[in-house]
Each structure stands twice: as C-alpha cells, then as structure tokens.
Amino acid sequence: MTFFDDKIAQIRGELKTEARQKEMQASLTQELVNKGIAEGELTVDQQIFTFHSIALAEDAIWMSVPTDFDEMNPEMVTLKYPSSHRPQLILTDDSSKFNVTFLVTNNEMKPGEMSNFTYAMLSAVRSMQPNTVFLSDGIKELSNQEIGYLEMLTPALDGTIYNLLFFAVWNKKIVQTSINCMEEDMALWQKFAHGMMETFTVKEE
C-alpha cells in the first residue's frame, strides 16, 4: 500500500520543473479537484486519492477528508499541539505531515458578523505573527451559511506551514477548521484543502 505522504512526495518530484508545474496547474483545475473530492476519488499523475465524508461534531458538521487519515495519536498531539487550547479533533496521515483540525469554541457569533470576525482574525494573526504571508481571504456561502477563511504561510521552527483556516457557526458557537501542511507539499495539498472546504456542511438543530 502506498501511503498518502508517499503519493504526495512522488508528485512533488514530478513538479520540480517549471514546465511540469504549469502543465499540472493547467490540467488539474480547482473545479476538477472539487468534483473529485465530492465524488470520493481523484487521480493525479496516476496516483489515486480517495475521500470520504466524516462527522466532525455530533453528526451535525460534515466534511470530506482523505480516507487515509485517522485521528492523531495522543503522543503526537501533545508534541505538535502543546497548548491546552488545542483542537478537539485532529486528523492526519501516516506521516503526520498533513493535518485537518477542528474546534468548537465557546465564543458566540450573531448573524451578519462573519466578515468582521474574519478580518479581525486576520489582523490578530498579522499582529502576533508579522512574518505571516497571506495568500487569500474572503467570505463564501457554504451549506446555506457564511464561511470566513484565511489562507496563509506561517514560519515555524521546522520550516514554513501552509494553512487554510476557516470559520463557521454552529448552534451560535464559532467553529474553526484548519487544513495544513509544510510549504514544500502545498502545490497539490492547497487544491485539496480548498476542495475539502467546499464539502463543509453544517446541519443546525
């Protein structure tokens, strides 16, 4: 069996030339990735990636993630997320290089406040981590509600982390989801991250 990170590494090796990168970017559109993730299977450079929809919270919040992913083991959680305010759910591949995290906060949000909250978070990140490079941000409607998102590159001790961070509301509480990897692996994972975000669904009680 080929592990998720091995598939990514093989594709990364194929993308070392600028011409090959342009070829993949032209052929592997975000629309194609979104469709493959929603349908449960996507083939990239003869590597097959499969996805399934899982419940992130109480059978009420769902999102498609790679079938290779499982909950991170407690020892690795303590190492990678030492803060007591760590996410409630951390899904990862066998190498722990690619992660999906999920947190229901205690903070409430009223209707119409998503834009202000998202850009307040952007300002907070910029203030606390001034070396962060923001790639994109915005507000979109998914599952009949507004989703705010920030996409960034953040310096860390062992390199630079790519992170797609997005926010929603469930039972008036702010929920926060992060899809991240190391910068060197983001060429494909970035497209996967946006495709997974597109499947994010909230079922209000």
Rank of each mutant, 00 (worst) to 15 (best):
Asn144Cys: 04
Ser53Leu: 07
Glu71Lys: 15
Asn99Val: 09
Ala124Glu: 13
Asp68Val: 00
Leu103Thr: 14
Thr101Leu: 06
Thr118Ile: 07
Ser143Thr: 08
Lys140Gly: 02
Gly148Cys: 08
Val125Asn: 06
Ala60Thr: 10
Leu79Gln: 10
Thr118Phe: 13
Leu142Ile: 11
Met76Glu: 13
Glu108Gln: 13
Ser136Trp: 04
Ile147Phe: 12
Leu142Asn: 08
Asn73Ile: 04
Asp70Thr: 10
Lys140Val: 10
Glu151Thr: 02
Glu75Pro: 00
His52Glu: 14
Glu75Thr: 08
Glu71Phe: 12
Ile61Phe: 11
Glu146Phe: 12
Glu108Phe: 15
Pro82Trp: 01
Val65Arg: 03
Tyr149Ser: 05
Phe117Cys: 03
Ser127Thr: 11
Glu58Tyr: 10
Lys80Val: 01
Lys110Ser: 12
Leu135Cys: 02
His52Arg: 11
Glu58Gly: 07
Ser123Phe: 07
Gln129Phe: 12
Met63Gly: 05
Ile54Arg: 12
Leu135Thr: 00
Val125Cys: 00
Glu146Ala: 14
Tyr119Thr: 03
Tyr119Lys: 09
Asp93Lys: 04
Phe98Pro: 01
Val104Ala: 12
Met121Ala: 08
Pro111Gln: 08
Tyr149Ala: 06
Gln88Glu: 09
Asn131His: 06
Pro130Tyr: 10
Ala55Val: 04
Pro74Met: 07
Pro74His: 09
Asp70Ala: 11
Ile90Ala: 01
Asp68Gly: 06
Tyr81Gln: 02
Val125Trp: 09
Ser64Phe: 11
Asn116Asp: 15
Val104Gln: 15
Arg86Lys: 14
Val133Ala: 06
Ile90Val: 10
Ala124Val: 01
Ile90Phe: 08
Tyr119Trp: 12
Phe51Glu: 03
Pro74Gln: 08
Met114Phe: 11
Thr105Gln: 08
Pro74Cys: 07
Asn99Trp: 07
Asn99Tyr: 01
Trp62Arg: 11
Asp137Phe: 04
Ala60Gly: 02
Glu108Ser: 14
Thr67Lys: 13
Glu146Cys: 00
Glu58Cys: 03
Arg86Trp: 01
Ser123Lys: 13
Glu151Ser: 03
Gln145Arg: 15
Pro130His: 06
Val65Ala: 06
Glu146Asn: 10
Tyr81Val: 01
Leu91Met: 14
Ile139Ala: 04
Leu103Asp: 14
Asn106Asp: 14
Glu146Trp: 08
Asn116Ala: 15
Asn106Arg: 14
Ile61Asp: 09
Ser64Gln: 14
Leu91His: 07
Val104Met: 12
Val125Phe: 13
Leu89His: 09
Leu150Lys: 09
Thr118Arg: 12
Glu75Asp: 09
Ala55Leu: 06
Met76His: 08
Lys140Pro: 00
Pro66Asn: 08
Lys110Asn: 12
Ala60Pro: 00
Leu89Phe: 10
Pro74Lys: 11
Asp70Leu: 03
His52Ser: 10
Met72Thr: 04
Val77Met: 11
Leu79Phe: 09
Ala60Ile: 03
Glu151Cys: 02
Ala124Arg: 14
Met128Lys: 14
Leu135Met: 05
Met128His: 09
Ile90Arg: 06
Thr101Asp: 06
Ser64Gly: 02
Ser53Arg: 15
Ile90Gln: 03
Thr132Ser: 03
Glu71Leu: 13
Asn99Met: 06
Ser127Val: 01
Asn99Leu: 15
Glu141Ile: 15
Ser136Pro: 00
Ser136Tyr: 03
Lys97Thr: 04
Met63Thr: 07
